[in-house]
């Protein structure tokens, strides 16, 4: 498979309702920013979640390490962007 077929990874942040921060909900692949927003709308707001979406190319996110002294992070330094925040666990999921 050629690389041109593989769309880059985007991280998606959704504002669930007014008054809340955008929170990270996951990632998806898209060829461009516009497509990332469209896909995010379809994938992460199928059930009316969210009033605002941010889509950010994963490679553009800078993230801190848990422990800067540690040389063993080096192999994953190119993955620093992965999933930097939690998203809220909904109240109506029982027993979590």
């Amino acid at each position: 498979m050629s690389d041109s077929e593989n769309w880059p990874l985007y991280e998606i942040f959704i504002r669930g309702k007014r008054g809340l921060n955008h929170v990270h909900v996951g990632s998806l692949h898209a060829a461009d920013d516009r497509m990332a927003l469209t896909h995010a709308r379809d994938l992460y707001t199928r059930r009316n979640e969210g009033v605002s979406i941010w889509a950010v190319r994963s490679e553009h996110i800078a993230a801190s390490t848990r422990d800067e002294k540690d040389p063993f992070f080096a192999p994953s330094a190119d993955k620093v962007y992965r999933h930097p925040t939690f998203y809220d666990i909904p109240d109506d999921v029982p027993h979590i």
Binding site: S2, S4, E5, N6, W7, A31, D32, M35
Partner: peptide, 9 residues
């Protein structure tokens, strides 16, 4: 389709 979208981008 995927290649075309990448090319356009």
């Amino acid at each position: 389709v995927r290649a075309a979208a990448s090319a356009h981008a």
